[in-house]
Design a protein around this nucleic acid. Structure first.
Lengths: 162, 162
DNA sequence: AATATTGCCGAACGATATTCGGCATACAGG
DNA sequence: CCTGTATGCCGAATATCGTTCGGCAATATT
């Protein structure tokens, strides 16, 4: 019974460790997730089903969070990227603050250690729209100030690589 | 001749405008790029080949920059996300600065208007690794200071949505 | 030493991607 | 207003890929 319980627990809860082949696969998929398992197999010296099995496990274990289309900001009417540092009285993480996540212009929200409380990464059509967004940030109770850093140019923008 | 030249130029160079159906498609793909054209067709009231044609055009025109696997930072050994503001003497955009893009820990690099010159978004295993990375930033000629904002928690992290 | 587990592969099957011809609609030019 | 061109859509067909499965080998566990 103990053994069985242990086995059940181990099988259900413990994700497999990520090995070197996994890392290479993850690197390839982080770069381009449209590659076929045949192509990936050639690059990893594995057969397509073997790659498929690994990818399946990496998705199941949450190492691959999602497969998404990365869009071009300007092409979809969001040419202005900015980082907004939000200072709040007290802790800052409130329902109203978290509700800002529902705004399409807000792409990232991090609580930080430092001389700000929250950092938002936002993407809007223009400075007018940034101002409108800031108005919504100021409407959150407890917000006492913001500092905006408008990206003039972007030299790199990608997600994590292993 | 004029007409022909105009036609050739229009066909080759002008990306099609992005219409409302395109925007909906982009939203679906930005959220989950593994959906089949059959599924997308149901959601958009189009046939699979019609969706396929639109997606192909959006990729060709660069509206969809790439299709990528979004990885979980902690799962690949990068549990610490930070934003590093880099102050430089003079303009800041130099070969050495841009070379920081080659570091796997550096995910974003933006030149900004404000009281910093460059903002880097970085992801590293731990504070020790952040320190090592900062050492490499300081090694860039012209860098006179940095301010790091360590993300304590991340409440939202995604790319652009139309 | 025996058994169980894990990972890989070839083959097969199911599902999807992609192409193509035809049709309808909209727009531009005469 | 008429004609021609361009564009987008669809059904059907074809090509390609994803996924499953049984078998095998290596490793780990008992």
């Amino acid at each position: 019974m103990d053994v069985e319980t242990k086995t059940v627990r181990r099988r259900a809860a413990a994700p497999s460790p990520v090995d070197a082949v996994d890392r290479k696969l993850l690197g390839l998929l982080a770069e381009d997730a449209t590659r076929s398992y045949a192509e990936l197999g050639l690059l990893l010296n594995l057969s397509p089903p073997a790659v498929h099995e690994r990818a399946k496990r990496l998705r199941r274990d949450g190492v691959i969070r999602a497969t998404i289309a990365a869009l071009d900001g300007p092409a979809i009417g969001r040419a202005l990227t900015a980082f907004v540092h939000v200072d709040t009285t007290g802790w800052g993480k409130s329902g109203a603050m978290l509700a800002l996540r529902d705004l399409p212009a807000v792409e990232e929200m991090h609580s930080v250690a430092g001389d700000a409380c929250m950092i938002l990464k936002v993407r809007v059509p223009d400075t007018r729209a940034l101002e409108d967004l800031l108005a919504q940030v100021y409407a959150v109770p407890g917000v006492k100030g913001t500092r905006s850093y408008i990206a003039l140019n972007t030299y790199l923008e990608r997600g994590p690589r292993p």
